[in-house]
Computed example of a mutant assay.
Amino acid sequence: MSDLLKGRVAIVTGAGRGIGRAHALELAAHGARVVVNDYGVSLSGELSGERGAGSPADEVVALIREAGGEAVANGADVADFNQAEAMVRQAIDTFGGLDVLVNNAGFVRDRMLVTTSEEEWDAVIRVHLKGHFAPLRHAGAYWRAEAKAGRPRAARVVNTSSGAGLQGSVGQATYSAAKAGIAGLTLVAAQELGRYGVTVNAIAPVARTRMTEGAFDTSAMALPEDNSPIVAWLASVEAGDVTGRVIEIDGSTITVENAWSHGPACDNGSRWDAADVGPALRELLAEAPAPEPVYGA
């Protein structure tokens, strides 16, 4: 396609199927050398036996190599702190460095809030939120060390949030909470890592995948690969002036999300009396835009 990412080294997590697979293939097509991570689990996170030789990650690596690119497979559990560190080290040892981290891995356990078990909550929060933190923490430490040693890299992080985390989604309280957390993590990481030349953004992709096909009618939804050109550009050196943003991608439409921002305010001049809060708050709510409807409402 192009030399947009020529010479750059990328990790894509959850890259054996769906959106992650599309990202890995897209980055490779633009010249990136890719560590294709996939733990080999089912849609709901159970081990599926699709690990090791012949795994989905191996299949993606084979496709990249057949097209003339460079890639290696990785089977790390990205929410395991030590395995995430080893994955980052694999990229550095194999390709001589790391420039791009695309955090994509995750699964769903859809339940209404009052029927969600503690195990389901813990599993979803772990894979999405800790599964973003652990690779980002180790990659960030590497980029900081490189910068301090006088070898700064034009590093890029692309996290994966969701409309469920930004607007909410009925029946997905756990998933929505995790994806909202990822958006918040993105804002902080962008600020903290910017001094080392690292940009951190998030996408909120819309696509027909294993995650969405069982939940509702996906016939009109975009394909996984429709999201990947935006990721490729965000991963490029050219995108160095874009950071701390959440970008929704829905087919041919990209939207910069406003997320939480300060709206109408009222200063009482002293401690509020509870009896005065209602009228004041209702006036502010009348001035503020109505929140977007929760998905599924």
Rank of each mutant, 00 (worst) to 15 (best):
T160C: 13
S161E: 09
G163E: 14
G163L: 11
A164Y: 11
G165L: 06
G165Q: 06
L166C: 05
L166M: 10
G168Y: 05
S169Y: 00
S169D: 02
S169K: 03
V170N: 01
G171T: 00
Q172R: 04
Q172L: 06
A173L: 08
T174E: 06
T174Q: 05
T174Y: 12
Y175W: 02
Y175F: 03
A178T: 02
A178W: 13
A178G: 05
K179I: 04
A180V: 13
A180R: 11
A180T: 07
G181A: 14
G181P: 13
I182Q: 09
I182C: 11
I182K: 06
A183S: 15
G184I: 02
G184P: 02
G184A: 01
G184D: 05
L185T: 03
L185H: 02
L187F: 10
V188F: 02
V188K: 03
V188W: 07
A189Q: 02
A190S: 15
A190Y: 02
Q191G: 08
Q191F: 05
E192V: 11
E192F: 04
L193N: 05
G194H: 12
G194K: 12
G194C: 11
G194Y: 03
G194R: 14
R195H: 00
Y196K: 09
Y196W: 08
Y196S: 12
Y196L: 08
V198K: 14
V198L: 08
V198Q: 11
V198D: 04
V200S: 12
V200D: 11
V200F: 06
V200I: 06
I203P: 04
I203R: 02
V206H: 15
V206W: 15
V206G: 12
A207G: 03
A207I: 06
R208P: 04
R210N: 13
R210F: 07
T212I: 06
E213T: 13
E213G: 13
G214I: 01
F216L: 13
D217P: 07
T218C: 15
S219L: 05
A220L: 10
A220F: 11
A220S: 13
M221R: 05
P224C: 04
P224S: 08
P224L: 08
E225S: 13
N227E: 07
S228E: 07
P229T: 09
P229R: 07
I230D: 03
I230F: 14
V231Q: 05
A232C: 06
W233R: 06
W233M: 09
L234R: 04
L234G: 02
L234N: 03
L234K: 09
A235C: 14
S236M: 11
V237N: 15
A239I: 05
G240Y: 12
G240I: 08
G240M: 07
G240D: 13
V242M: 14
T243L: 08
G244I: 01
G244D: 01
R245W: 04
R245F: 00
R245H: 07
V246K: 00
V246W: 00
V246T: 03
